[in-house]
Amino acid sequence: MTRILDVQELVAGYEPGLSIVKGASIHADEGEIVVILGPNGAGKSSLIKAIAGLVPVTGGQVLLDGVPITATPAHLMVRRGLAFVPQTENIFPLLTVQENLAVAGGILPRATVPARIDEMFGMFPDLARQRRLLAGSLSGGQRQMLAVARALIVHPRVLMLDEPSAGLSPKFVEMVFARLGEIRRAGLTIVLVEQNARAALAIGDRAYVLAEGREAHEGPAATLWNDPVIAELYLGHRKAS
């Protein structure tokens, strides 16, 4: 299997000498859903933001398809094939749904953008119905769908999401994760940071548990959920067996 994303000994933090990510190594293979779990403050969000170029990297490297992309300016990451959906404020509320997609499509050849927007609307029919509404008027679940569509419009190699289930009702969490499963079946590699371990592990192939800024455990998603030590330590549930 081809290794798409390879993060090696990454060190990153907002202030010099104050690293939040402390030598984390993770990877994702083609078509895989990789889940990153861990207690609050473990550096999950910072890790994914550092990969996306949003947190200054002070050590280690990130390879995408074998090409180093470490500390590429954030606005060029998406051109390299790495799309990122932040946890909050991940849409432009005062642009319409369609404009949100068009803005993100700016890096594509201009003539292909309208057709690509239509493809996204085909994939997310709910959004198609609301294309002329301001994105800020969408419900939480629809906003998340728009954020995912916005990330997908540029044909990324890897889609990274920071807690896509945050703030969503259980019904929408189920919907969002079902869509992510479908997107993966189309061949995309997905890296997911999640608090909602149960939902994420249900669709994930492999998972990392992060602690104190680096990976503490790694394993197939199914066995990780069933590992009582890890479950108790990091995932916040006690396996009833």
């Binding site: 949003l54 606005h75 642009l95 404009e99």
Partner: peptide, 24 residues
């Protein structure tokens, strides 16, 4: 225009503008 949309997007959320590939 695309530049106009990008300017509006950037004014709403500069960090997200960078994430979607807008050249600041």
């Amino acid at each position: 225009s695309q530049t106009g949309r990008e300017m509006r997007a950037y004014s709403q959320n500069p960090a997200l503008a960078r994430v979607v590939g807008i050249d600041v």
